[in-house]
């Protein structure tokens, strides 16, 4: 009986999230029963399943008390939530990449502060990266198939997330720079973190990987 509403992301970190929440004693089995529902309830815990990028929205507005989401999404959205635990799973890197044939050319264009076009699902992250390098970029926000953009001349390079690099290799893209690395995080609504602190503390303690904070 946790009394919590937990937002779980679909997709790449779904299984990691379930393992962490299940390991902490939450009844996650119910999430595997019927793939079409949006809200699941078991033993007083409610689960909602949403797109990863919507998890911080549900949590910020208090529609969910806690959620599991990648650091990459948090860096992109900068939601007003409490970031409580690094699950250490779902590791991936935010990278700048370009077609292998034009990589040197793109690198040089950025060096010379020429305007380059960047396709990405993470427009704020991309803009921040270029601003930190003292450069401006034309950021084109897309919702999927980012790798397609440089192949058809929509953009010269991309800022995207990669775990294994397979998709990049398949599309003949090479990494020009690593922007940041990301793992799955546990976040909480600001109000729920205080008003339901006993329940959330129990959950966090049960999730804490042993030894990670030893030093």
């Amino acid at each position: 009986m946790s009394g919590l509403r937990v937002a779980v992301p679909k997709g790449a970190i779904f299984e990691d999230a379930l393992r962490a929440l299940g390991g902490a004693g939450l009844p996650v089995g119910v999430l595997r029963e019927n793939g079409r529902r949006l809200v699941y309830e078991a033993n007083g815990t409610e689960f909602i399943v949403s797109r990863p990028s919507d998890v911080p929205v549900f949590v910020e507005y208090g529609a969910a008390d806690v959620g599991v989401v990648g650091k990459d999404v948090l860096e992109e959205q900068e939601p007003n939530v409490v970031e409580l635990r690094d699950l250490g799973t779902g590791a991936c890197r935010m990278i700048l990449a370009a077609p292998a044939a034009e990589a040197a050319e793109v690198e040089e264009a950025i060096e010379r502060a020429e305007i380059v076009r960047v396709a990405t699902k993470f427009p704020r992250t991309a803009r921040r990266y270029f601003e930190n390098r003292g450069r401006q970029a034309e950021v084109i926000a897309l919702h999927g198939s980012i790798e397609l953009a440089p192949l058809v001349g929509l953009a010269e390079c991309i800022v995207d997330l990669t775990a294994t690099g397979t998709t990049l290799r398949e599309n003949d893209l090479v990494v020009l720079d690593e922007i940041s690395s990301s793992t799955a995080r546990v976040i909480a609504n600001r109000g729920a973190y205080r008003l339901k602190n006993p329940e959330i503390s129990v959950l966090l303690k049960a999730m804490q990987p042993e030894g990670i904070l030893g030093g």
Partner: peptide, 17 residues
């Protein structure tokens, strides 16, 4: 201030026990 307690944990690891 950013309510990022994970970052607090990370930074604390460089300090005496």
């Amino acid at each position: 201030a950013a309510k990022d307690l994970v970052r607090v944990d990370e930074l604390s690891r460089g300090l005496p026990k």
